[in-house]
Design a protein around this nucleic acid. Sequence first.
DNA 1: TCATCGATTCGATGACCATCGATACATCAA
DNA 2: TTGATGTATCGATGGTCATCGAATCGATGA
Lengths: 109, 109
Amino acid sequence: MDCCPPLHSPLDEDDAVELAAVLKALADPARLRLLSIIGSASDGWACACDLHEPLDRSQPTVSHHLSTLVKAGLVEREQRGKWAWFRVRPERIDAVRQALDLGTLPISG
Amino acid sequence: MDCCPPLHSPLDEDDAVELAAVLKALADPARLRLLSIIGSASDGWACACDLHEPLDRSQPTVSHHLSTLVKAGLVEREQRGKWAWFRVRPERIDAVRQALDLGTLPISG
DNA sequence: TCATCGATTCGATGACCATCGATACATCAA
DNA sequence: TTGATGTATCGATGGTCATCGAATCGATGA
């Protein structure tokens, strides 16, 4: 998936639904903080076991948010034995940023 | 409001709530299409009367979405006699794009 | 094989929200 | 002033989702 069509082009309903789905995955405080925490890991990878404590949410809730991020393609998951490790996919977030580009809008001039 | 703290900095709960609120306003197909349509207007301003038809939603629904966009600061409203006119505020959308910047993350190298 | 511990899934609950029809409000024209 | 029209608000409804505790799954080590 090449996510997502830019906002400055005429956005049909299907494209809008697709872009909205990714934005909805971002539009939650817990998930934004997860992205921030995971992205701040020294080598980019963070263990799930280190995530629920700083988030101050229950472990099942954090697991739910992580799977939401994975399903949206914003985060990558890797199983290492007993532990699950996660990594931000910056190219996906960049795609969202580009979709929100208004640079070619008349009003921006 | 200087919306919003960048994702690559440690995001505390308050900042995350604030950024999530703006993203939530964006995370709806109808509102994305509204932004797209309004932004495509020749002079940047679009009349509400021209918006519900291409959106294929009822007039009250479109009015609701427009007020959501205004409340989030993403769109500006101006009353011209009987008609309401709207304009995208690109600097606000740009602020969201910058908040999503991952450029300084270690993983992006 | 069994006990342990981390992680996910399940089920329930309460909150929020997109949507609509009906209504009310505001402005313009006659 | 009256009627027509554009817009916002109200109330209701159905759906989605964040959250949690409990249960389940899976891997490790004894």
